[in-house]
Design a protein around this nucleic acid. Structure first.
Lengths: 353, 353
DNA sequence: GTTTGGCACTCAAATAGGAAGAGTGCTAAC
DNA sequence: GTTAGCACTCTTCCTATTTGAGTGCCAAAC
């Protein structure tokens, strides 16, 4: 978890100047000088006075200057303080919330819902939208189907509570007839319904241990098959939208940086790991620049929030963009999108029936 | 289809010089001047003579010069002539072919096979590998399953001959009980097995028309449901690997160009359309630069070949890279990869059984 | 008539030298 | 504590100027 910046003793005025400086920098993208800051702060201070204050802020590591004759730019530490204590997030416009809600309701398929969420995030922020797929292991069992293929192979089709269809080809240790497979599926469909896949694995394991002799060899081998099905590899995934948006930001224009960023997107693994860390967090979670500890994201910030069905965290959604982003509006957007997605999923998956 | 360049009357010598020029340019990436060319052609000609010949080639539109004091660079027309008549493709190394074959055989899942193909293409060429998924419509029916959801919705799971599992949520016009759905699936599984999806749509349509009164209302509505299932949207797809490789090429380093290229990759639609054009072509198909007619690929070439199962073209695979690519080795690689993939798919999907 | 050396010419890329402008830090005065 | 003043430091933007690669053309050589 990200440690909140420990309270720094800053005069009211210094805080205000830092806030204005960061806001201005986020808006313009240029280092902010004392003259501009003095004009914008509305405090009737001369540039010279502002310089004194800013010099203190620099000493504290909240701002730096790219070179002697440039203005100041916030550091990660500065952004952190800004976000934690200076930022005034305004709630999302009602009309926009409404629009989001309608977009979500236009989708039937839960998978489409996730894509829509990602698309919305990227198009509204002009940055990258990301939504992780629900972790299979956390999902509840809904239906299973065995389809015999040639050479003793079996195509297993597993439907989880989120209506997602997973499939995999396995090679059971002993051959089954088509009828046997059918029977096995029926058996499992009755007995496993509604259980979570993780629990299921445990349960099957126990059952195989304990009732070793009491149950028929056939059932035993079916259970073994079922168990092998649940051992999914780590093929979890996420939806990423608007990658190319990042090419518009001058701070990421460097070829090497951009390249490593795009490679990170293709690689998925590390990024997914990072996102997984956010799943248990309450509310909006933010990694600023190097805070993520992931080198390709060095110049980027990640704003996330988990989405949930029936209060179980299903996955994470968020926005990736340059450190210099409009947190003021991104944070509420991510917040609301996650809430609406959760709500929509709840409606689709847990209908009043 | 790409029109082969009509035979141009070129002296032996001019052809040879063009060939050397292009080879050299592909190798070095720098415009080739008369001095270098004279040295490399092995013809014992003076630069001045070479200049005369090259001037002719320029007049014919086979080469241009970026500016007065630079050497010459091949044009699309030049590349075309080079590939069609000057290029001597050497067969792939035996060892490499062997390695490819082993990589393919390590995969069970057909879908993984396609990914592997794409990965191999991109990693061996340091460019982008692309493999289209088999066109659903062309595939044969294997199995169908109806799973009742809430609110009268039905999750349809369709397995095609390539063992791919397609799913979709539909809302039938009349409600079905669980047992009815089971029965319907059984019926369809028996009657539709092995038929192609396109044919199937036609057949179902006909059946619904003709035997309007003879069949029971229930069967009729099942058929209607089946038909609606087959009306897949145009969600065809492809696997793309190694996008970031393109960032290494100086000729694509321009930000705008790169951006539009990556957008094209995200958009998929137009690129897919282009790839579809290649599916019926015999052997390796090449689009050089603007030949593709797709603006983002202006500076790129596309080398493709279709892959097939039982002599039915299933999909297309290929490589996307800068126009200035090493055709000499890319062409045989794409050729062999397609053949091996076809072969591997045949083995997996059409086992001797 | 093909080939070649010679030569003037063109243009991109690299280098160097200011000049302008923004912003700082420090000091001394208010 | 605040401010004006000023010297100083850098970046950015011009503008020559040079260098070098390569061309095109012509007249001579083969």
């Amino acid at each position: 978890m990200i440690s909140r910046s420990q309270p720094i003793e800053l005069t009211e005025r210094a805080q205000h100047l830092l806030k204005v400086l960061i806001e201005r920098y986020i808006e313009e993208g240029q280092p902010v000088g004392s003259r501009t800051l003095a004009r914008n702060a509305g405090l009737n201070l001369s540039p010279a006075t502002v310089r004194n204050v800013i010099a203190d802020l620099e000493e504290m590591g909240l701002v730096t200057s790219p070179h002697t004759s440039a203005g100041r730019v916030p550091t990660v530490k500065g952004y952190r303080l800004f976000i934690d204590s200076l930022l005034s997030v305004k709630p999302l416009e009602q009309a926009l919330t409404q629009k989001l809600w309608e977009d979500f309701n236009a989708q039937e398929d839960p998978q489409e819902l996730l894509k829509t969420a990602s698309r919305l995030l990227s198009s509204l922020t002009h940055m990258v939208g990301v939504v992780t797929l629900p972790k299979r292991q956390q999902l509840a069992f809904r239906h299973i189907e065995f389809l015999p293929l040639s050479q003793g192979q079996v195509l297993v089709i597993l439907v989880t509570e989120d209506r997602e269809v997973h499939n995999r080809i396995i090679r059971p240790s002993r051959p089954f007839t088509s009828a046997q497979l059918q029977q096995a599926a029926n058996y499992l469909n009755v007995h496993l319904k509604g259980k979570r896949l993780t629990e299921l694995r445990m349960a099957l394991f126990d059952e195989l241990q304990q009732t070793g002799e009491q149950i028929s060899a056939e059932i035993k081998s079916v259970l073994e098959m079922a168990k092998s099905v649940l051992e999914f590899g780590p093929e979890e995934d996420f939806v990423l939208t608007g990658r190319t948006n990042l090419m518009d930001f001058s701070e990421l224009a460097d070829h090497e940086r951009l390249r490593s960023l795009f490679e990170a997107f293709e690689e998925k693994r590390n990024l997914l790991h990072l996102l997984d860390q956010c799943i248990e967090a309450e509310g909006v979670q933010i990694f600023i620049g190097e805070e993520s500890g992931y080198q390709p994201l060095e110049q980027c910030s990640l704003v996330t929030r988990s989405y949930a069905v029936e209060n179980r965290a299903f996955g994470v959604l968020g926005v990736i963009g340059p450190t210099r982003m409009h947190y003021e509006s991104v944070i509420p957007l991510v917040d609301v999108t996650a809430k609406l997605l959760s709500h929509a999923l709840n409606q689709k998956l847990m209908p009043p029936s």
